[in-house]
């Protein structure tokens, strides 16, 4: 088996995680290289020091961003692509026990790292397997069309991920070779991972956890952070 190769594991992790001051020069440099290639299409970015780089691009530049990351940042390993619905669920956490009226739920949209202006966002993760850096790309999905360009031109693996995102969130990927359902039966109505899609099982039968929980006996909590009572008053 002479052709088989093996590589020694390094003795310690690379130095970037050991920085004391909260700056991540490697990821800032990566972001700057990315922004230089893509130009105005980069809307915002965020760095979790020592961990992850987020870059938000415009919806039109979504496919170009993948190509730039692949060809200029050498992020050739496609990790995943998915979407997120930033609308807070109108059903709360399904912990309505039917005895107390549910509290009104704040429906304002608050987006996460690297900002966002729309209800839906798509995000994907790409990795450079040679120099070991990675990037999370995000893009707002226009509320009126719910369409972004496809990544299948850049990564073949995006095919299934986009099919999943389409059926779960109803986001259309322009240029995708066949956006059929992958998990749901053909003809399924609705998009289950949208926050306004009810979790039927919790409506049919309330979460048993809420009826079983008795109020905890009054024990002194050393690390109590104020509102830590029973779990029922969540959301």
């Amino acid at each position: 088996m002479s052709a088989d190769t093996e590589t020694e594991a390094p003795e310690a992790a690379d130095g970037e995680a050991e920085e004391a001051e909260p700056r991540d020069e490697a990821r800032e440099e990566l972001r700057d290289r990315f922004a230089a290639e893509l130009g105005d299409a980069v809307v915002d970015s965020h760095i979790a020091v020592g961990h992850t780089l987020w870059v938000r691009v415009t919806a039109e530049a979504w496919a170009t961003a993948a190509l730039v990351a692949r060809d200029h940042l050498n992020c050739r390993w496609f990790d995943f692509l998915s979407a997120i619905d930033w609308l807070p669920s109108p059903y709360g956490r399904y912990e309505d026990d039917g005895l107390t009226p549910p509290e009104p739920i704040d429906q304002t949209i608050v987006t996460g790292y690297a900002g966002g202006d729309t209800r839906f966002q798509v995000f994907g993760h790409l990795v450079d397997v040679v120099d070991h850096h990675d990037i999370v790309l995000k893009a707002d999905v226009p509320d009126d069309t719910l369409t972004v360009p496809t990544w299948t031109g850049a990564f073949d693996g995006a095919n299934w991920h986009e099919r999943e995102a389409r059926e779960m969130f109803g986001i259309n990927f322009e240029g995708h070779p066949g956006l059929r359902n992958i998990y749901l039966p053909t003809g399924f109505e609705g998009h289950p991972l949208r926050k306004d899609f009810p979790l039927i099982s919790r409506i049919v039968k309330p979460w048993p956890g809420i009826v079983d929980v008795e109020p905890m006996p009054a024990v002194e909590e050393p690390e109590d952070d104020g509102d830590a009572g029973s779990t029922e008053d969540a959301s």
Binding site: A3, D4, T5, E6, T7, E8, A9, P10, E11, A12, A13, H51, W77, V127, V129, H132, D134
Partner: peptide, 28 residues
């Protein structure tokens, strides 16, 4: 043939970097 193992190349929270082990790849 891609030499990429998250335990070695992107360790997070586990102690793999402190152990003595090998990553095997195969070109075929």
């Amino acid at each position: 043939g891609v030499d990429w193992d998250l335990r070695r190349d992107a360790p997070c929270g586990l102690v793999h970097p402190e152990l003595d082990w090998k990553v095997y790849t195969h070109p075929d």
